[in-house]
């Protein structure tokens, strides 16, 4: 019974939104404090310092964006952004942002159409490929943008000359740069849901490959596809090396040009983008929190899991187990 009580109490305190509560109680019944967990004080101090570090850029940019050139405070830098008489810098920024958004869309399309289906196919049909894929996907990290750009120069001048002069072609390069991140995210989820077995089950029931992919595998990968999309978007929106050295115009190259005449505008735009990215990543991290690998497609199982947690806790008589399954 103690286990059930604990689970119920824990759920109640969770409902109260008490996130600061010591989750892994160091001393239970006056016994042993876990060696492999930080003490409450250590945890608070370290995390407070980390959040201070993260907050510094935000505080710095906020303060800076309200400073006037003579040292007083002003809101004119923010007003400039929304004024109808847009300064030239802002029109330029709009163009760069437009280019960047087009690049982001094409990069995501490349990941969806070419990369993710192939990663799934490799995992399901060629399980032996896992070992060399792991090595292969390290290569884009070993040959980063600053090195690759030297080889991209001739490739993109060919594209520029013969195929298209528009800016979105950069997406071909950004798709490669995002590849290791897409791979690690998708691969972890594929392993967790046992894709090969699911595929065999689907096919023994008569489903073809496309149907298996669409109604069995992709729903299971929903969470990792969403985080892939966000990371890909963040990488393509923030990429500077290739765009700048190939003389393209994107949001980042424009920010640099503008900073030379109106550094306040650059800072205001940077602050907005940084916060939007953070919020988007934060929201997505929450969407996946209810699901764990091997637990099917998530959300729907929430209510039964409460009972499950209590039962498991009862059986094991351990507070830790109820802790774990409660958040499953």
């Amino acid at each position: 019974m103690a286990g059930v009580n604990h689970a119920v109490a824990a759920v109640a305190s969770d409902a109260a939104g008490n996130a600061e509560k010591e989750e892994y109680t160091t001393i239970q019944n006056g016994a042993w404090s876990r060696y492999d967990r930080p003490s409450l004080a250590a945890r608070r101090i370290i995390l407070a310092l980390f959040f201070l570090l993260v907050a510094l850029p935000v505080i710095g940019m906020l303060y800076f964006s309200f400073r006037s050139t003579d040292g007083g405070m002003t809101t004119s830098h923010w007003a400039e952004l929304f004024s109808s008489a847009a300064p030239r810098a802002l029109r330029m920024l709009n163009r760069g942002l437009g280019n960047s958004l087009a690049i982001v869309l094409v990069t995501i399309a490349i990941e969806y159409v070419v990369v993710i289906p192939t990663l799934v196919l490799l995992d399901v049909r060629f399980p032996r490929s896992r070992r060399w894929m792991r090595v292969l996907m390290l290569l884009p990290i070993a040959i980063p943008a600053i090195i690759l750009v030297v080889g991209y120069a001739p490739v993109f001048s060919f594209i520029y000359q013969w195929i298209s002069t528009s800016q979105w072609t950069l997406a071909f390069a950004y798709g490669i740069i995002s590849l290791p991140f897409v791979y690690t995210t998708i691969e972890a989820d594929l392993m967790g849901m046992n894709a090969a077995t699911l595929t065999q089950a689907a096919e023994s029931l008569g489903a073809g490959w496309l149907r298996t992919l669409w109604s069995v595998l992709l729903p299971g990968l929903r969470k990792s596809i969403v985080s892939c999309t966000l990371i890909t978007a963040a990488i393509s929106l923030g990429e500077f090396t290739i765009a700048s050295l190939l003389n393209r115009e994107t949001l980042q190259t424009d920010l640099i040009v503008i900073s030379q005449s109106d550094v306040y505008l650059s800072v205001v735009v940077t602050l907005i983008i940084l916060i939007l990215t953070f919020v988007a990543l934060f929201l997505v991290s929450g969407a996946g929190a209810q699901r764990r690998p091997g637990h099917g497609t998530g959300g729907r199982k929430r209510i039964p899991q409460g009972q499950e947690a209590a039962e498991v806790a009862e059986a094991a008589g351990s507070a830790d187990v109820s802790d774990e399954s409660r958040h499953a």
Binding site: A19, E20, L47, F50, F51, V54, L56, P57, V58, G60, M61, Y63, F64, F181, I231, A234, I235, L237, G238, E239, F240, Q252, L255, I256, S259, V263, S266, V267, T270, I273, L274, T277, F278, L281, F282, S285, G286, A289
Partner: peptide, 26 residues
């Protein structure tokens, strides 16, 4: 807390060095 740290860490580590440079100037 985990979610805050995770999203802050991915924002800072993945997101363009240009913006970080501006932040640092401020």
């Amino acid at each position: 807390v985990r979610r805050l740290v995770d999203s802050a860490a991915s924002t800072l580590s993945q997101f363009g060095g240009v913006m970080l440079a501006f932040a640092f100037i401020t």
